[in-house]
Nucleic acid binder design. Structure first.
Lengths: 207, 207
DNA sequence: TCTAAATTCGAACAAATGTTTGAATCATGG
DNA sequence: CCATGATTCAAACATTTGTTCGAATTTAGA
């Protein structure tokens, strides 16, 4: 592809990521997006065929960026002692708290998708979340009795992720009053210790 | 007020609750709402002044219904042993899983508000969530060392609520494939045991 | 340099949105 | 029964929405 057209294309995607994250799919108009991108209105339909097409591209970018940043390597975790593997997992789950703007925008886009899943991502989740959850369940299972049912293991994995996601999801609200949490590296480290310690001991005692 | 006008008013609110829950504030058009309510389009502006006014009314109804159903009595919990108080709290947090349609709609409306807080609810939260979190922190504090900081206690309370909210929030997704959880009374009871047991042991060991 | 394709641009389109209007209908108290 | 206010209704309003169009401009290869 040519250089200048790629430039406006990237600009549009970048602006779209910001606006979709801030206002959701329906709340972000293409006029607002092209305005922020400094591009023409018809450029969206030219480059992405439609608003849906742009959104799909944004979802790809967000998912790719998120997994590359946050993705945990199941093979790597398998070689670690279960306690260290758990801590590594929790650490990765909490990592977006410290991430720069792009990452928090990706998180927000997925939060939107969570309350109103698009048909596009629904399939996406069905094929991608399953192995992800399965790996998390496998990790948790190392702490549970051998005869634990698949449902119980899945629930335990969800339970573990919930402990992290509530902080990641509501990060922006916790920073403001009345909570006033100062989210820096030291806080996240502290939080990792807290979550990890509590979850670990809970799991260990359950075993 | 007169009887018939109250009837259409209630119909509109009921339809609005359903549609705001399903599609969010912007996704639910007033034409769709009045159509579902079997009312005239101008009725919304007549009864609620504007779409914003209707939404504010819906938020009131949702919050009132939610707290009446889910609200926990701090005085009552104080008299219980800390383990029973914790279990009661978890039980209340998970209760919406079993609730009938109205309650799950309220939960969904708050989920929308969570990704995109309206100015209306932002103040609302600031004044209402604070005491709620404070009470939860107080409950959790009974398991923590006496010198635990306020921030740590608040984090522990958030941590506890996160374990429940992930199930309540994503209830609809967990029912469908690939998760296929069967959410009935026995499951919720089981889940309460799981969450409560894991959290309890985690907290107890931390103390 | 010249040509053909790729890209940008402003304008217009149809559809959907929240709101307002004024007449019609209803309920209610004198 | 009648008159006054409350309520409903269909229609139209002004905006905003996503999309399409054709001409203008830019880019890249011969």
């Amino acid at each position: 592809m040519t250089r200048p057209s790629d430039y406006t294309r990237q600009n549009i995607v970048k602006a779209a990521v910001a606006l979709f994250a801030e206002r959701g799919y329906e709340g972000a108009s293409i006029r607002a997006i092209v305005s922020k991108a400094g591009a023409n209105q018809a450029a969206i339909n030219y480059h992405f065929k439609s608003k849906d097409g742009l959104y799909l591209e944004v979802l790809k970018v967000a998912f790719e960026g998120y997994t590359r940043f946050n993705g945990f390597d199941p093979e790597q975790l398998k070689d670690l002692p279960r306690e260290e593997a758990l801590r590594s997992f929790v650490q990765q789950q909490l990592r977006p708290l410290l991430a720069r703007d792009d990452m928090s925008r990706y998180v927000r886009i997925f939060a939107w998708e969570n309350v109103h899943p698009s048909k596009v991502l629904r399939k996406f989740i069905t094929t991608n979340a399953t192995p992800y959850l399965a790996r998390a369940a496998e990790l948790v299972r190392r702490f549970l009795p051998p005869d634990t049912s698949d449902t119980d293991a899945a629930c335990a994995a969800i339970w573990l992720m919930g402990q992290c996601s509530i902080f990641v999801r509501n990060r922006d609200q916790f920073v403001q009053p009345p909570f006033n949490l100062k989210i820096d590296e030291s806080f996240v480290e502290q939080l990792t210790d807290l979550v990890c310690g509590l979850a670990l001991k809970g799991l260990a005692r359950a075993a």
